[in-house]
Every structure is written in structure tokens, then in C-alpha cells.
């Protein structure tokens, strides 16, 4: 007897459509603000209409041109300078934060030493307070160090705020790496440092990618500290620059929107580049089970 085999196991009829009926409105709702920002950015410098429709009534790249071309009185290219500031500060924060966090996390994950528990808890405790709390002390510190208005100052502050989170995340990941792999390497003749560099780090690529992305984004998007520490326009990072388009007297929504979009591009690019690593499973096959 030959029964007609079902061609697909997917549900049919209402069952198939119900999720879509729910998901489509939710997606639209989520995307609406983004679309609205795009509309604002594309509406040119003309001004904002009050229409709620997120589709631009006119297409103009004027706002982008203005934002990108923004220069100071002497003709110095301010936008370029600020973009550079943001990139350098974020990248430096990531590199500094991750290198320190990796080493710290490995120590916490693998070695017994006095103060290990206390250290971990202290790291955790710093995460319990809102960052704003440290604003004043940090300001004083940075001022004393003469690092106001400098990329180095901002980088130091950003790194210290991201390290605890990164350390905890990485320690959590290192804890899951089978100890035998390291023991194997130890017997094979590797030193602790070689194990760290040649076994642990490559195996932790997914976790490091995630924490790196976190650090980068945290630094890239940070506004309050930057706004407090930076006063020269040439020292601004992009979030401070964006904020400046929303002045007290005139609010330039289209410039604000355009600069926001421009500022989010690098993060999106980074996400795209790292997405392969964001999916775990790199240790598959190393140990059985």
C-alpha cells in the first residue's frame, strides 16, 4: 500500500498564519522609531513636518552633507576629527579592557589565591551601582591627572568601567572550557602563558568577540562621561557631537537624525563582521561528550 506522503511538515491554514499575524505588527512597531529617524534624516534641512507617517516626503541628503562637512571657524574638519576620536577611544577601550579582562578572568577561573573570592565580589559590586555615581570622583581624578579633553583620559575611564563586566563574562566562559585540554598542553610542554595565548584565547574567540563588541559599543555610545570630560569641540566624540545639534534655542532634528544614523553605522558594521564568532560551539570535538 502506498500512502500519500506529506510533502511538508509545516503547519497549514490558520496555524501557519497566526504567528505572522502577531509578528508583523510587532516588527512594524519596533521599526517605527528607526524609520522615523531615517525619515527625519532624509527630509533635508527644511524642517520637520508633523506627519506621523514614517516615509519621507522628500529625499534630500542635505542633512548628511551638513553633518559630515561640519567644520570649525579655521576650516578644520570637525566631523572627521570627532569620528576619529570616537574610533580611537572605542578601539583603545576595547583593546585595553579586553586584554586586562582576559588575563584577570583566566586568573580568577584557574588559580586559587588569597582574595580571589573577594576580588570577584568586588568586581560584581561595582556593577551594582549606577555609573553616574562615579562621575564626580572620576572627574576629579581625571582633572588631577590633567587628562580632561583627552582621548587617553576617556579611554582609561571607559576601560575601568567595562573591565568588571568583561571579566565576569570571560571567567564564566573559561570555566566551561575543559580542564583536560589545558592539562594536555601542560604535559605537552606548554607554559601557562603559552596555554593562555595558544589554547585559551583561540578557544574563547566567541566569548571574546561578544565582550569586545560590548566594550566597543559601550564606549562608542557613552555620552554622560564624555559630555562631562570634554569641552573642546575638537575633542568631542560622536555622541557629544550629536547632542550639540539639539541646542537650547534651535533644535535641528534632521541633523540630529542624520548624525545618529552615521554614528550607528560602525557598530552595525562591527556586528556584521563579528556575527560568525557570536555563535558559539568552537570547542566542539575537543573532548568527548
Amino acid at each position: 500500500m502506498s500512502a500519500q506522503a506529506p510533502t511538508s511538515l509545516a503547519p497549514t491554514g490558520l496555524k501557519a498564519w497566526l504567528p505572522h499575524l502577531l509578528m508583523v505588527p510587532v516588527t512594524i512597531l519596533t521599526l517605527y522609531p528607526v524609520l522615523y529617524v531615517i525619515k527625519l534624516a532624509l527630509s533635508g534641512t527644511a524642517g520637520v513636518t508633523s506627519s506621523a507617517w514614517p516615509w519621507p516626503e522628500q529625499f534630500s541628503l542635505d542633512a548628511f552633507r551638513t553633518v559630515i562637512g561640519h567644520s570649525d571657524a579655521q576650516g578644520g574638519w570637525l566631523f572627521g576629527r570627532q569620528l576619529f576620536n570616537s574610533l580611537v577611544v572605542s578601539a583603545a577601550t576595547t583593546v585595553l579592557g579586553i586584554s586586562l579582562a582576559c588575563a584577570a578572568a583566566y586568573g580568577f577561573a584557574r588559580f586559587e589565591f588569597p582574595g580571589r573570592r573577594v576580588g570577584l565580589l568586588a568586581f560584581l559590586a561595582t556593577q551594582m551601582f549606577p555609573g553616574i555615581l562615579t562621575l564626580i570622583p572620576l572627574y576629579v581624578l581625571i582633572q588631577k591627572l590633567g587628562l580632561l579633553d583627552s582621548m587617553l583620559g576617556l579611554t582609561l575611564v571607559y576601560s575601568t568601567t567595562t573591565i568588571p563586566f568583561c571579566t565576569w563574562t570571560l571567567k564564566g566562559y573559561f570555566d566551561t572550557l575543559p580542564k583536560e585540554i589545558e592539562e594536555s598542553a601542560l604535559i605537552d610542554g606548554a607554559t601557562r602563558l603559552q596555554i593562555f595565548l595558544r589554547i585559551i584565547l583561540p578557544l574563547s574567540a566567541p566569548a571574546i568577540a561578544v565582550t569586545a563588541l560590548f566594550s566597543f559599543m559601550a564606549a562608542w555610545n557613552e555620552f554622560v562621561l564624555a559630555y562631562t570630560f570634554l569641552s573642546r569641540e575638537a575633542a568631542y566624540t560622536l555622541p557629544v557631537m550629536i547632542r550639540n545639534y539639539v541646542g537650547e534655542k534651535d533644535v535641528q532634528w534632521s541633523l540630529f537624525a542624520a548624525s545618529s544614523l552615521i554614528a550607528s553605522l560602525p557598530v552595525m558594521a562591527l556586528f556584521y563582521a563579528l556575527q560568525k564568532h557570536l555563535v558559539g560551539g568552537l570547542t566542539a570535538g575537543g573532548v568527548k561528550g
Binding site: 594536555s184 598542553a185 589554547i199 578557544l203 570547542t283 575537543g286
Partner: peptide, 12 residues
């Protein structure tokens, strides 16, 4: 040289 029950190969 040691051979582990879990093999402990270097996955990468």
C-alpha cells in the same frame, strides 16, 4: 605523555 578519557584534543 598522557591520554585522557575525554581525549582532550585541541579543538581549534
Amino acid at each position: 605523555a598522557m591520554v585522557f578519557q575525554s581525549y582532550a584534543l585541541y579543538p581549534h
